[in-house]
Amino acid sequence: MTNVQKRSMITGYAGLPFGKLSQCEAGCVGVLGVPSEVEHGSRTGTALAPDALRKMSQNVDSDFPVRGFDLGNLNPTGDWSHTLGQLVTQMLDRNIVPLVLGGASEVALTVLGALPDMPVVAAMPMVRQDVAVRSTNTVWLGLNNVQPAEVWDQICQRKMIWRSARQLDEGRGDGFEMCNAAILWVDISVLDLGHAAGADGLNPGGMEPETLVSVIGAMAYRWQAIVITGLAPCRDTRGMSELTAIETLNAALGNA
């Protein structure tokens, strides 16, 4: 973490103290910001997300449900991918839950790369080839619009579980098979544009914020790592997108 950031914030995410990995105990969370920017498209701003989430988390009504430390931000100009992978592995070895605040989707792919055999619950509007090819099945939440045919075939052949945004908004979010441990990846562009516009992708007809929170909160998984990506706070001046991300994290960790 840079000295500038330390000076500008008294407390870290959700009031957690800033600290080092060595200070984290087993069962805690380690919050790590990776302010990487999206490389394609016009809806930039994901680099601002970790600090925007920290700021917003000081003002919400709900309490952060677990103990832990905020480990600050990785320097996005260096080899952050390698460092992130190492930090995630170290945290998991010590039974610490990495809570990674992206950043662009590459941040989540790095976390997934550090846990190659772990099932993934992915909340995102479009399925991804690089996630679908993992050895374990992925649970897809909030799919919307036309999906790429070859990836979809793969998902159907392997009988992966999926729910569209509409199904979830209509309350058809049950029937998930129980799973002991998984990685949670929430891409904020899963949210409907009209409810929370602070995402790097446009998603009309996406999930409602309350649906995302309740669906994640109802999943009795033991999250091994949680990653938020695709949040572009400057696109949402009211902060509904940050608020949704924070309440989703609280809902996920509240089940821990």
Partner: peptide
């Protein structure tokens, strides 16, 4: 609910 406010502090 948060959607009605300029500076929401909770969704519900």
């Amino acid at each position: 609910a948060g959607i009605w406010k300029s500076r929401p502090r909770r969704l519900g």
